[in-house]
C-alpha cells in the first residue's frame, strides 16, 4: 500500500518563540521536523512493511531553503518528499495549507493519508480534516492505534471516557496522537540513503492553483500581554518542602488550620 504522510518543519520548540512584525510566529531561525510528525511516519512505515509493497512519501508546505527536517523523515525510511514553497503562501491559514496539500496529494491519491492531530507550533488542529473534506475522504482522528484489514482502516480513537474502535474504507485520512508508536531512529544507512532521495519543490503555479484563492482571510488585530499572576514563593527543598506545602494548603484553606 502507498501512504502519504503530512509533515512540517517548525522552529525548534526548545528555543524561545517570538513573533515577527506581522504578528506571525517568527520562522526565520533553524527549522526542524515537528516531532509530532515522526509518529505518523513510523505508523506509515509499519503499515507499508506489513503490506509487503508500496512506499511512504511525504508532503509538506513551507520554506524549502533548508530541508534537513524533511531529510530526517526520509532517513527513517520514506522514499520521497514534495514540498510546496512559495512566498505567496506566507501567513497561510490552515484551510489554505489544506488546499495546497490536497492539490499535491490528488495528483496520485494514496491508500492512506496520515498526519499528526496537530502541529507543535500552531496547534490549529483542523488541517487533516479540511484535507479529508477537500479530497472527499473519510477522516479517522485522534488515533492511538492504526491497522489495515482487507481494504478497511481500523483505529482506536481517543474519547473522553476511553476509546472507540472506528473503521472506514480506504482511501482515508487518519490523524495519530504522539506516542501511538515508538518512532525508529534513523540508521547510518538510512541517513546516507536519504541524501539521494528526491525532494521535489513546487510553487503554487506548478500546482495550477489560483493564487487569489490562497490569500489569508484571518488577521491578527493585536497581541497583548495576558494578565498572568506573578510567580509566588519558591523554596529549594531542604527536607522541609512537604511541611511548607502543608502550611500553604492551610493558608489557602484547602486544609483546616492545625490546632497547634
Amino acid at each position: 500500500m502507498n501512504v502519504v504522510v503530512c509533515v512540517k518543519q517548525i522552529p525548534d520548540p526548545a528555543a524561545t518563540p517570538s513573533l515577527d512584525a506581522e504578528h506571525r510566529l517568527d520562522r526565520s531561525g533553524k527549522l526542524i521536523l515537528d516531532e509530532a510528525d515522526t509518529y505518523g511516519v513510523e505508523v506509515a512505515l509499519r503499515l507499508v512493511e506489513a503490506s509487503g509493497d508500496g512506499e511512504v512519501s511525504l508532503v509538506s508546505m513551507g520554506d524549502a531553503t533548508d530541508v534537513t527536517g524533511i531529510r530526517s523523515a526520509l532517513a527513517m525510511g520514506a522514499m520521497r518528499a514534495t514540498v510546496v514553497s512559495d512566498p505567496l503562501l506566507k501567513g497561510a491559514d490552515a484551510l489554505t495549507t489544506a488546499k495546497v496539500l490536497a492539490a499535491v496529494i490528488s495528483r496520485d491519491v494514496p491508500d492512506l493519508v496520515l498526519a499528526a492531530t496537530e502541529s507543535s507550533d500552531g496547534y490549529t488542529g483542523t488541517l487533516p480534516v479540511q484535507l479529508a473534506e477537500l479530497l472527499g475522504l473519510p477522516a479517522l482522528t485522534f488515533a492511538t492505534s492504526v491497522a489495515v484489514e482487507s481494504g478497511d482502516v481500523v483505529v482506536h480513537r481517543q474519547t473522553e471516557l476511553g476509546y472507540d474502535e472506528v473503521v472506514a474504507a480506504l482511501p482515508a485520512v487518519v490523524t495519530v496522537t504522539a506516542g501511538v508508536v515508538e518512532p525508529r531512529y534513523a540508521t547510518f544507512k538510512g541517513i546516507m540513503a536519504a541524501k539521494s532521495r528526491t525532494v521535489e519543490v513546487l510553487s503554487v503555479a506548478d500546482l495550477g492553483l489560483d493564487a487569489s484563492a490562497l490569500v489569508p482571510r484571518q488577521e491578527v488585530v493585536s497581541v497583548e500581554l495576558a494578565a498572568t499572576k506573578n510567580a509566588g514563593e519558591k523554596y529549594v527543598d531542604d527536607g522541609e518542602g512537604a511541611a511548607r506545602i502543608v502550611a500553604f494548603l492551610e493558608r489557602i484553606k484547602i486544609l483546616a488550620g492545625s490546632a497547634s
Partner: peptide, 23 residues
C-alpha cells in the same frame, strides 16, 4: 473544542471555503 467539534469545524470550513479560528 472537543474531538468531534474540531472535526466538524474542519469539515465545515472546507465545505464553506471559509477559514476557522481555533483555540
Amino acid at each position: 473544542a472537543s474531538n468531534d467539534g474540531r472535526d466538524i469545524a474542519g469539515r465545515l470550513s472546507a465545505r464553506l471555503d471559509t477559514p476557522v479560528l481555533t483555540n
